[in-house]
């Protein structure tokens, strides 16, 4: 277990005019750990995710990221080029809607290969081999490599988006409702795949979800958000089995038992 956090956020606040997106959020994320951010629609979890992933400048607060060389960098003080490079190589971002994270008009192989080219890989044969390998790892038949994702089912598209994100060996992956909008059986398969890959690659991940079962399966730690604030956080099984705050108790007791 590494004792230096990969990312350190303090007092992250985002105000939209009169409205609070998120307020005074502190978070440390360590290499290899998965943190879930849960809460209902409008609780600020996606706003927070966007702030942490350098996609939305916070109104106040600081976010530091430990670069591969060990330097701690202020995310919003680094240059645009450096930030772009980080987002293309060291980070992944898995969108709820795969169409937001894929290029729908180019082949599956190109979707995976494109990220590799962004980190300087130029050899066509190697790019194709790596793309084939990744399609296999996300359980997409390799004979679909030349098909475009608009010919894929929702579950396949989501798996392709994951391959596209993981191919560069990122250290931190942001996921916004990665199983939202999928059929339940497809969800289970995707979750199992994610769990396996994250463990195998030792990634850190921040997963936004409104589904507590997803949080339990994937994450070690959990943050519960309400009205833009983190109202309870801790070990995932502790928070879900022994919720302390009224709102967390309400969330946990609202799960339907099968």
């Amino acid at each position: 277990m590494s004792d230096q956090p990969l990312m350190t956020a303090r007092g992250v606040t985002k105000i939209y005019g009169e409205r609070i997106g998120c307020e005074a959020v502190d978070l440390d994320i360590y290499p290899g750990e998965i943190v879930a951010i849960v809460g209902e629609s409008g609780s600020g979890k996606t706003t927070l995710l966007n702030c942490l992933s350098a996609r939305l400048a916070p109104s106040a607060g600081s976010i530091y990221y430990r670069m591969r060389d060990g330097r701690l960098q202020d995310l919003y003080a680094m240059g645009e080029a450096e930030r772009r490079f980080l987002m293309r190589t060291d980070w992944g971002f898995v969108h709820q809607n795969p169409a937001d994270g894929l290029r729908m008009g180019v082949s599956a192989g190109a979707n995976v290969g494109e990220r590799l080219m962004a980190v300087g890989e130029r050899h066509y044969g190697r790019i194709r081999d790596t793309a084939l390998d990744w399609l296999e790892r996300v359980e997409i038949s390799t004979d679909r490599i030349d098909d475009r994702p608009n010919a894929f089912s929702g579950g396949m598209r989501q798996r392709l988006q994951i391959a596209r994100n993981l191919v560069t060996g990122p250290r931190l992956v942001f996921m916004d409702e990665p199983t939202g909008g999928l059929d339940v059986s497809v969800q289970a398969r995707l979750l199992d795949l994610l769990r396996g890959l994250v463990g195998e690659l030792g990634l850190a991940a921040i997963v936004v979800t409104h589904d507590l079962a997803v949080a339990r399966l994937l994450s070690q730690r959990i943050m519960v958000m309400k009205d833009g604030r983190v109202i309870e956080h801790g070990l995932t099984d502790r928070v879900l089995d022994d919720p302390r705050e009224p709102y967390t108790q309400l969330l946990v007791s609202s799960i339907l038992q099968v």
Partner: peptide, 9 residues
């Protein structure tokens, strides 16, 4: 037992 495992606060 759950407290000793950190499952209950």
């Amino acid at each position: 037992l759950k407290m000793l495992y950190g499952n209950y606060a």
